[in-house]
């Protein structure tokens, strides 16, 4: 494109101003990521002074093909996907419905609702975890009382892995629905009111207005939210750490990588540091996220082109 802001030396200005951002990106993000792919071919422990051996694809072979452990890894991979699918869709739906409702000027105390639903985001994973551990306290906590009322009992986060996993999904959605809602709200506010008025003139009902006006015009927010949620949930594991720790039947890939790399796998105090192996696991996660993320993005872009022209 034509550059309008001078020639000669002053042509360099955009480059100079671009430099810091690009440099940060190369140094902090891209460089280390490339290094990860190199580490994944070694047996590095992450300790200063330790010898590092080049072991080729051994880490990948172990991660993907060695005994029951690799099957457990695939389970973790599957769990990562399940987690992502549930979190993304449910959070998306709740965020959308809440935003549409809160965009209606007839609803009272909208500010209160908006603040309340966004609040967990501000509190952060640690407090979210504490609040819910308390709420799900199995020795007579509120949820235990509710279960009791229906003649049920449960260990919640300390019980069967599947149940604990479901609770983490619920809490993850509870925690991050606010972001989705906010992005939708800002998108809704960019829709000009004339569009609604025109639809009303045509005698459209609420659902038709939503389908024909709100939804297509919301496309940019839809895309942002979907992409954020998918990538975020594929890589999220903080709540697993805070709520249940590293437990059989609940691990997701992100947590597995941290636990292996920093010696926290078995809760045993002598488990070894295996950062090379952890690096291989992160490369697997990268490929997974890349494939899913890119296909979703392509799909979204096509859809956007179709709708927005």
């Amino acid at each position: 494109m034509n550059y309008h802001f001078g020639r000669g030396k002053s042509r360099l200005t955009p480059y100079l101003l671009l430099l810091p951002g690009i440099a940060f990106y190369f140094i902090i993000s891209l460089g280390p990521s490339l290094a990860t792919s190199i580490f994944s071919l070694t047996d590095t422990t992450g300790l200063k002074g330790a010898t590092i051996n080049w072991i080729g694809l051994d880490n990948y072979k172990e991660f993907l093909f060695m005994g029951q452990a690799s099957k457990d890894n695939f389970d973790a991979l599957g769990r990562t996907l399940i987690f992502s699918v549930f979190v993304t869709t449910i959070q998306f739906l709740f965020g959308l419905v809440t935003a549409v409702i809160l965009n209606n000027p007839k609803i009272r105390a909208r500010n209160f609702f908006r603040t309340l639903f966004f609040m967990p985001v501000i509190l952060g994973a640690v407090i979210q975890g504490l609040i819910w551990s308390l709420f799900l306290f199995p020795l007579g906590g509120p949820m235990a009382k509710l279960f009791e009322f229906f003649g049920l009992r449960s260990e919640f986060l300390g019980g069967s892995p599947t149940e604990a996993f479901i609770w983490v999904i619920i809490i993850q959605i509870w925690a991050n629905m606010g972001i989705t809602m906010m992005i939708f709200l800002s998108g809704l506010q960019t829709i000009p009111s004339e569009m609604y008025e025109a639809a009303e003139m045509d005698g459209a009902n609420n659902w038709q207005v939503f389908k024909n006006v709100t939804w297509p015009l919301l496309t940019p927010s839809v895309n942002t939210n979907l992409l954020l949620n998918i990538i975020g949930s594929l890589q999220a594991w903080q709540l697993f750490l805070v709520l249940i720790g590293y437990r059989n039947g609940t691990q997701v890939l992100g947590y597995l990588i941290y636990a292996v790399g920093f010696g926290q796998t078995s809760g045993s105090v002598t488990s070894s540091f295996r950062q090379g192996y952890a690096a291989a696991a992160s490369m697997v996660l990268f490929v997974l996220v890349l494939v899913i993320g890119l296909s979703v993005q392509t799909f979204l872009r096509r859809r956007e082109e179709r709708i927005m022209g």
Partner: peptide, 27 residues
């Protein structure tokens, strides 16, 4: 036992004599 035990590489995550695998703490 756990002071001696090292699991062979490739063994699954349940290769331990732990009572917590039973319901209601496990499956």
């Amino acid at each position: 036992y756990e002071q001696y035990w090292i699991a062979p590489k490739g063994s699954g995550q349940f290769a331990n004599p732990w009572a917590s695998y039973f319901k209601p703490f496990g499956t």
